[in-house]
Simulated assay, not measured.
Amino acid sequence: MKVLAAMSGGVDSAVAAARAAEAGHEVVGVHMALSKNRDQRRTGSRGCCTVEDASDARRAADRIGIPYYVWDLSDDFHDLVVEDFLTEYAAGRTPNPCVRCNERIKFASLLERATLLGFDAVCTGHYASIRSEGPGGAPSLHRSRNDAKDQSYVLAVMGPEAVGRSLFPLGDFEDKQAVRAEARARGLGVSTKPDSYDICFIADGDTRGFLERSLGEAPGEVVDPDGTVLATHTGTHGYTIGQRKGLGIQHPAPDGRPRYVVDIDPARRQVVVGASELLSTRELHATDVISFEELTEGRPVHAQIRAHGEAVPAVIQQVPAPDAPGSLLQVRLDTPVRGVAPGQTLVLYDGDRVLAAATLERRA
């Protein structure tokens, strides 16, 4: 196959590209330049897709012996990921920008360009597996063998069509050290490069500061569930469901227990805080469902609401009505979970196989 290998400049994508080339595919490496700041530099382990990363990716491609290009996707990234992040926070929701990047950049913009150029598939260094059940069976997305690094949750939004045109060569690695060892054996200089983490377009890790600089101030009140004003704030976008610290409350609750953000109302400019039990729910409601197979009511599943959270046993209570945009997927959990926030991604599993992804709207 003719394969386009997305090379971030890290060890994972370099080993993935090397494995694809070794498997006999005609591989071309491409680095996605996502930052509009051409002078952006990496800060330790923070950030990715910087000038240094592009250079590291080029050296890895040279070592593997494949052609290499840099594609400027900064406009797409800004419009489809960064602006979405800001819009969601301004609306009192909690988005996952890595999910959006995988959906809209790595498996939409990149795959579209790859198709136009005649490539058969896109190869990345994600930790996930693609399998086909039986002869001629449709490919399905599964968890990686490396539970600690599994990325099937953030990949679930790519949908079945993109899965069928993707390669994830790292899915069978049991741990990251094995990947680094293979990189060393292949002579790849990125074998000891630290992993990137946090939000790539907020290189200093100060999410709240980034939101304040981007969205400005919109002062309002911090209240308890009865509406009693406890403090003031400079913008609801500085808060997330489940947050405990930085609430600005100067006196303890009457019962002495900690308070948490339990609701955010941007229209009224209110942040509602309350006891921890107000964060727990067993009912999840979601829209914008992306299914890998037909969902049925009453089906047992496992539901996951965070990238590295636990998948909880659950039952599908309601499936979206066909051709009815905005209709709900409802799931009931066997045990309550805390801190469910609108805007988070819900992923349903059958064992290690992804069944569907959706966007959480509210909790019952």
Rank of each mutant, 00 (worst) to 15 (best):
T124N: 03
P266F: 08
I66T: 02
I305T: 11
A54I: 14
Y69V: 10
K106L: 09
R93M: 02
C101S: 13
A128Q: 14
R186P: 05
D62I: 07
G209D: 05
E88I: 05
A33W: 06
D12R: 10
V271D: 00
I130V: 14
L284C: 01
A364W: 06
E297V: 11
L80M: 14
A356Q: 09
V229Q: 13
L116Y: 06
D72A: 04
S196I: 10
T232M: 07
P252W: 10
G235W: 01
Y69W: 12
A114Q: 13
T240D: 09
G187W: 08
I202C: 07
F173E: 10
S13F: 00
G235C: 02
I66D: 05
V99R: 06
E103M: 08
A314D: 07
H302R: 15
I202T: 04
I105Y: 01
A23W: 01
A358T: 12
K2D: 11
A6K: 01
S55P: 00
E182C: 11
D323L: 12
D195R: 12
L247N: 00
I130H: 04
G10N: 06
M7T: 09
L333F: 05
H237P: 00
T281G: 02
D84T: 08
F77Y: 11
P320Q: 12
G227Q: 09
P266G: 07
S45A: 12
G10S: 11
E83C: 15
F77A: 07
Q151L: 14
V11L: 05
V190M: 14
G29S: 02
G159T: 15
S291Y: 13
G220L: 11
R58K: 12
A57P: 01
E217F: 05
E22V: 03
R58W: 05
P160V: 09
R257V: 12
H25D: 15
P258I: 05
T228Q: 08
R180E: 14
V319W: 09
E182P: 04
S327I: 03
A114P: 11
R184S: 11
L348S: 01
R42T: 03
L360F: 07
R113I: 03
P160E: 13
R93I: 00
L34H: 06
D226F: 10
Q243W: 00
W71M: 14
R165S: 13
R362L: 05
V301R: 06
A311N: 10
D288R: 13
R208F: 04
V272C: 15
D288G: 08
L141W: 11
